[in-house]
């Protein structure tokens, strides 16, 4: 036992708790399995350890020890690759795939969460060593909530209005409002589509969100989330029954056509509203304009 034992233990505990808290399995069902969770908890524990140990090494004037943080960085970049590979492999067997943009978003989130854990542990241990255990706990709690705030991204309901619209056919063309979705030939398929299909119109709230929802990855994420939460009327060998999202070129609205097993209008609108805004899809064209105008 040294004077650093308790601060290190506290740092590791709070860091691992932060990781545990950020590892929530919700309706999106990822990570699904116990083993997937264990991997992330273990990596979170390692991250907490690395963050914590940096403080005593500096205090002991062992400055070179801090370089292991760079090893940590490459280690967690590996986590991102691992997540990307696993999810890409799994995506091919999904009825409605997540899409690459969504996968990349998830992979980035997994990497960044480990860094948040490192910072939380580092600050906790530092505060403990500079003051006392209570200082450590308070700073740990503050860092915990900051991590929580940093983790939560935007939701689609912040940037679009969602409206339910019954899909309809004009000849062989399937439409949601005035947005053309696809051509369906067989009368039998048309009947199925009208029976199970639901249409939604996403109306962008401003010019920036118009480009965001135009992103194909963002649209695929919407289809995936709705299909996961409400089920999907689709199987291999029925390629005609496919959820699609198409864009109205005139005003940037997006028509979403889905085939849920459970036709619940309100829940579907709620789920679309809760789809995360993918970081890689965010565009802010108006920022440039403002800069040009010198504001």
């Amino acid at each position: 036992m040294t004077e650093y034992t308790y601060p290190i233990v506290l740092g590791i505990i709070i860091g691992t708790l932060t990781r545990l808290y950020m590892l929530r399995t919700d309706y999106r069902q990822y990570p699904t399995y116990l083993h997937g969770k264990i991997i992330h908890i273990a990596l979170g524990f390692i991250a907490a350890g690395l963050g914590t140990l940096a403080v005593p090494s500096i205090m002991e004037e062992n400055f070179t020890a801090v370089t292991f943080l760079t090893i940590a960085a490459s280690q967690f970049r590996e986590v991102r690759n691992m997540e990307r590979n696993t999810l890409s492999e799994m995506d091919s067997s999904e009825l409605v795939p997540r899409g690459r943009t969504y996968i990349e978003g998830i992979a980035i989130a997994f990497e960044s969460r480990n860094y948040l854990v490192i910072f939380t542990s580092l600050l906790t241990t530092l505060a403990y060593l500079l003051s006392n255990i209570w200082g450590g706990i308070i700073v740990g709690a503050i860092a915990f909530f900051i991590s929580k705030a940093l983790m939560a991204g935007g939701k689609l309901s912040d940037i679009v209005d969602v409206e339910f619209i019954e899909p309809r056919f004009e000849g062989a063309g399937l439409y949601v409002d005035n947005i053309y979705i696809m051509n369906i030939g067989l009368p039998e398929r048309k009947k199925e589509i009208l029976r199970y299909g639901m249409g939604f119109i996403l109306k962008p709230k401003n010019f920036d969100s118009r480009s965001t929802i135009a992103n194909l990855g963002q649209r695929q994420a919407i289809l995936h989330d709705v299909s996961t939460a409400l089920g999907v009327y689709r199987d291999s060998g029925t390629p005609a029954l496919v959820p699609l999202a198409k864009r109205d070129l005139d005003d940037g609205r997006v028509g979403v056509f889905v085939l849920p097993q459970e036709r619940d209008e309100k829940r579907a609108i709620e789920i679309i509203g809760k789809v995360p805004i993918l970081e890689n899809a965010v565009r802010l064209p108006t920022k440039r304009k403002r800069k040009e105008e010198g504001k």
């Binding site: 000849g171 062989a172 696809m182 051509n183 369906i184 030939g185 067989l186 398929r189 291999s236 060998g237 029925t238 390629p239 005609a240 496919v242």
Partner: peptide, 10 residues
């Protein structure tokens, strides 16, 4: 449509 795993368009 079922055999070829394609979509029938009119």
């Amino acid at each position: 449509e079922a055999i070829l795993d394609g979509i029938a368009h009119a």
